[in-house]
């Protein structure tokens, strides 16, 4: 037991060390790299929120982009209609969080009683509704063309946004890590493993599912807020299904049921996006990056179903286990 605690503080130190290194990175990198890394931070937060559903609770959602979009549009519309002051931003974030919480609560209550695949279909439909709404309510959203926003003065510097995103990522990472290691988090894992048994142990499974959907929705909306602050432009793409597919890939490639996995997955997918779109002149297939992702995805699911982090972790614990066995045999 003491060993576990010591190991955990050790891993905490490693994570904090990496975060500290990243904090000083803006001094040596150029603007476009800085922007890309900021995007990675934002999508890492988004992917972690998705993994809370997929990896920890075993809920498959095809509509997670709607919470990201709610965060993005709430911020953009507030910044656009009011002055671009910090107070307006603060209210915007509050509205984003509350709206995301409300929507996730309603979606959860309406659909989580259903079996998994019906739930997945319905989330897709709900996200579709938001996409259509954003396209049609032109007076509010200016439809597909989108619009640029003015961020508060002090947030216009890309280094500031970089640091804010990094700090958000670190805080959300440690927050979610505590959540997943809490008694509540253990019940989520139990639901993933065997829903009926969890029920017959006296846990009200629906309550847990709705709660985790709300938490996940709120975190996703925060990612949306940060996305808009870094991009300072919004269009209906933030509600798009390909965004959900991206986040699904990030989670699966990085490793479901871990929190580091989605971060690594987000970094890989974002880097791949960047690299592949640079190769568009070389061959047309690089413009159709979804085809390439499809192939990568199929290979991952066949050969590394646990994702990068999951596979490494299994190898590591497997080694430890065999060592223990050897010890037992020796004694």
């Amino acid at each position: 037991m003491v060993l576990i605690l010591r190991n955990m503080t050790k891993s905490n130190l490693i994570y904090l060390g990496i975060a500290a290194l990243l904090l000083f990175l803006p001094m040596i990198i150029t603007g476009s790299t800085k922007f890309m890394i900021t995007q990675i931070f934002v999508f890492a937060i988004f992917a972690m929120s998705y993994d809370l559903l997929l990896g920890y609770t075993g809920i498959i959602s095809f509509g997670h982009a709607m919470f990201f979009g709610i965060g993005a549009y709430s911020t953009a519309i507030f910044m656009d209609h009011f002055d671009s002051s910090l107070i307006a931003l603060f209210i915007a974030i509050l509205v984003a969080v509350l709206f995301a919480a409300l929507v996730s609560f309603i979606v959860g209550m309406l659909t989580l009683r259903l079996k998994t695949h019906f739930y997945a279909m319905l989330t897709l439909a709900f996200a579709g509704l938001f996409l259509v709404a954003a396209e049609k309510m032109r007076w509010l959203t200016r439809g597909n063309d989108g619009f640029t926003i003015k961020a508060p003065e002090i947030l216009r510097d890309s280094t500031t946004i970089y640091i804010i995103s990094l700090i958000s990522l670190v805080l959300i990472f440690f927050g979610l890590r505590r959540l997943t290691n809490s008694p509540f988090g253990r019940v989520l894992v139990a639901i993933r493993e065997n829903e009926h048994r969890t029920e017959s142990l006296g846990y009200n499974v629906l309550h847990y599912k709705v709660l985790v959907t709300v938490i996940s929705g709120v975190v996703a909306s925060l990612a949306g807020v940060l996305y808009i602050l870094s991009l300072r432009f919004v269009n209906t793409g933030v509600f798009g299904t390909d965004l959900t597919i991206d986040v699904l890939l990030m989670t699966i490639i990085g490793g479901v049921g871990t929190l580091v996995g989605p971060i690594i997955g987000a970094a890989l997918i974002e880097l791949a996006h960047d690299w592949i779109s640079g190769l568009a002149n070389v061959h047309w297939i690089f413009e159709r990056w979804l085809i390439l992702y499809g192939i990568v995805y199929i290979l991952m699911v066949i050969f590394f179903p646990l994702g990068i982090v999951g596979t490494i972790r299994e190898k590591f614990s497997g080694r430890k286990k065999s060592k223990n066995n050897a010890k037992q045999k020796a004694s």
Partner: peptide, 26 residues
């Protein structure tokens, strides 16, 4: 889940620790 975790989930329910999110399970 490990055998211990299986039993601990039952104990946790019996002890009525259901929605505690802020403390580590250890």
């Amino acid at each position: 889940l490990t055998v211990l975790e299986n039993v601990r989930l039952a104990i946790q329910s019996q002890a009525n620790v259901r929605y505690q999110m802020l403390k580590h399970f250890l």
